[in-house]
Nucleic acid binder design. Structure first.
Length: 600
RNA sequence: GGUCUGGUAGCUCAGUUGGAUAGAGCAACAGCCUUCUAAGCUGUGGGUCACAGGUUCGAUUCCUGUCCAGAUCACCA
């Protein structure tokens, strides 16, 4: 079926040509959805056309409206308010659209969502440190990365999800050291504590000891600055890192063991969260990459070396500062590794684009990275994209691990599910379900509430999470949308049980009321919404669409009987429509990584 | 101090390339379950779109300045 918008633009151009004998560019035809308080489906803003018509807004709009109604089947009627020409698209068109998706393709199938230029895209997300468990900030990262990858796939791209795990460095040495000193051989098995939490506990333990030692040194007359550098436990941790880099087996074996604990813990969290990866990278294997590339660029004169031997990039012409790429002792920094891994990925996988899902605190880093890569002459330098997302804040400000205000990912998921249980029991929703089904459903609802809460917010904005008020289940929430889905499914089940077969062919455009039309219009928007979300890397666009659709459907559900409708034609139409809405909701939520329950 | 984000109802958030009377939810209040699941639906109240200029037929949207908040500017990652 031809799209309404392009059809209408062409029609208006023809109309202007015929009415006023002027030829105009498409960008003068401004089209938008008609606002709900007015009659009509699509609105043409006529102000830009006045200079061609030479008439006032009202007159011009009426001229156009009359012409369109007479010459184009698609246009059924119109009204003019001020300079706005509100067009009514024929009900036949909307009905045909519903027929089209219901009888042939279905929204999910076909090429409805695909872009004209598919790409091979790598999405890096999660990228945790291995010294502590995941928290709410990581949840936002994981959900965003996973959803964006889904959306890009749905629009026809080939997507590779990767996770670069930061498994080395001073932070993990701190946990290792504290475990050796204070752990008495504790393991996840011996303590029953999840591996990543156990390792995190020793990271906290290290910090306690470090603070105590610093305080002690200060009481002996050291300045705070000195004391922070001289605390014995810190020196030990630094020594441990040196041993790790020297490859001493004694250190490596502890490192491998504790990291494995963490990986087991992460795997569990990822699984519950419903995210996954096509490939894992470990910094211990990539942190030396990039050095040769930097040295090559140095010999080409693209970088410069200071007297102390450190290598720098001058980014001042781009408005940034100078950036170190190799330390004076010749070792790599963070940026060096990113240069190396980016190079490796573009060369090895021949990707067209690389998306890094990383918090906005690293905006500067990625800006600098792109400039450095460009300076080094890589033609893919402008193909890297930093999907920068805002911080999750508490009502009183940032989460601080030192103050114990970090919201732990596992705890939060537990809480969401227990809230779901409490709500469901109060409402008596779970009667007649098996224990297994109950758990499955509560899992879907609890996680749905959490995921939707996070994904409905524009990624680039900071967002506030109040741990005291648990995440809502009413209103603009995941469960609201899930509930709409479950109610439709219930209707579909009932029809199937009664062996009622609905045939949309029995219905026609005349059976379509205003509510039905509004829903079809929303369904019509769905592919564009998905494409927009892909373009903007914003799952929030899909989340808000799902809400709008569910909201609209609930009104329809309230006002219009479906199975109880007497007129078989109307009944069939409503049934088909409900079925399509459930598909769109289910698919939209799936793109967000949110499951929907068959009943709740 | 430089750079980058952001500032919309008491709170959490929408608001498509500039368009009509700026929208939801939560919270508050008032209604709707003998009828397909009331985690729903309907209604009421709530706004100087931070502030001031500019661009134009028209600005929450674009530009400039001011104020406020956050991030960042390491031989950390």
């Amino acid at each position: 079926m031809e799209k309404i918008e392009s059809n209408l633009v062409a029609s208006v151009i023809k109309a202007v040509g015929s009415l006023y004998n002027k030829s105009i560019e498409p960008n003068f035809v401004q089209i938008q959805k008609t606002r709900k308080d007015f009659k009509g489906d699509i609105t043409i803003v006529v102000f830009p056309l006045l200079k061609f018509s030479g008439k006032g807004p009202e007159q011009t709009a009426n001229d156009l409206g009359n012409y369109l109604v007479q010459h184009f089947e698609l246009v059924e009627g119109f009204n003019v308010i001020k300079g706005f020409l509100n067009i009514e698209i024929s009900k036949q068109y909307w009905f045909s659209f519903l027929e089209d998706i219901y009888l042939t393709k279905g929204l999910e199938g076909g090429q409805l969502f695909h872009t004209s230029s598919p790409k091979k895209i790598m999405v890096e997300y999660s990228s945790p440190n291995t010294n502590k468990p995941l928290h709410l900030g990581h949840i936002r990262n994981n959900l965003l990365g996973y959803a964006v990858a889904n959306i890009l796939k749905a629009t026809g791209n080939e997507v590779l999800k990767v996770n670069l795990i930061n498994d080395r460095g001073i932070h993990i040495c701190k946990s290792m050291l504290a475990w050796q000193k204070f752990g008495n051989g504790a393991t996840p098995e011996s303590t029953g504590i999840k591996g990543d939490h156990l390792v995190g506990d020793y990271y906290v333990r290290f910090d306690q000891e470090y603070k105590a030692q610093t305080k002690e040194l200060m009481s002996q007359g050291m300045t705070e600055e000195e004391a922070k550098k001289q605390a014995p436990i810190l020196l030990e941790a630094q020594e441990m890192l040196r041993k790790w880099e020297a490859g001493e087996e004694e250190v490596l074996s502890v490192w491998r063991m504790m990291n494995q604990w963490v990986y087991n813990g992460f795997d569990e969290t990822y699984k519950r969260l419903g995210v996954d990866f096509d490939r894992l990278y470990y910094e211990s294997q990539t942190y030396l990459l990039g050095k040769q590339i930097v040295l090559d660029a140095l010999t080409k004169g693209l970088l410069y070396k200071k007297e102390d031997g450190s290598v720098w990039a001058d980014l001042t012409e781009k408005g940034l500062d100078h950036k170190v790429l190799l330390r004076s002792d010749g070792t790599s920094v963070y940026m060096t590794q990113d240069i190396g891994t980016a190079h490796q990925r573009f060369e090895q996988y021949h990707i067209d684009s690389h998306i890094y899902v990383v918090g906005n605190e690293q905006n500067y880093h990625f800006q600098a990275l792109a400039i450095v890569l460009g300076k080094m002459g890589f033609d893919w330098a402008d193909k890297i994209f930093h999907l920068s997302y805002g911080m999750v804040e508490l009502p009183e400000g940032k989460m601080k691990s030192r103050e114990g205000t970090v919201v732990d990912a596992d705890d939060l998921m537990d809480e969401m599910i227990s809230t779901a249980r409490q709500m469901s029991e109060e409402l008596g929703k779970l009667e007649g379900l098996s224990a297994e089904d109950i758990n499955k459903t509560l899992n879907i609802i609890g996680l749905g509430a959490l995921k939707y809460f996070i994904l409905k917010v524009d990624p680039k904005k900071n967002m506030v999470f109040d741990p005291k008020e648990s995440i809502d289940f009413n209103g603009n929430t995941g469960p609201f949308i899930q509930y709409t889905y479950a109610r439709i499914k219930s209707i579909l089940r009932k029809a199937a049980d009664a062996q009622i077969v609905f045939d949309l062919k029995q219905a026609s455009a005349v059976n379509m009321g205003d509510k039905e039309k509004e829903l079809v219009k929303l369904l019509y928007d769905f592919p564009m919404v998905v494409q927009e979300a892909a373009k903007e890397f914003s799952p929030a666009i899909i989340a808000n669409y799902c809400y709008d659709l569910a909201k609209e459907y609930n009104q329809f559900y309230h006002d219009c009987p479906i199975l109880k409708e007497a007129d078989i034609a109307v009944k069939s139409l409503r049934f088909a429509l409900s079925q399509q809405v459930s598909q769109a909701i289910g698919y939209g939520m799936k793109l967000l990584g949110i499951d929907v329950p068959e009943r709740m």
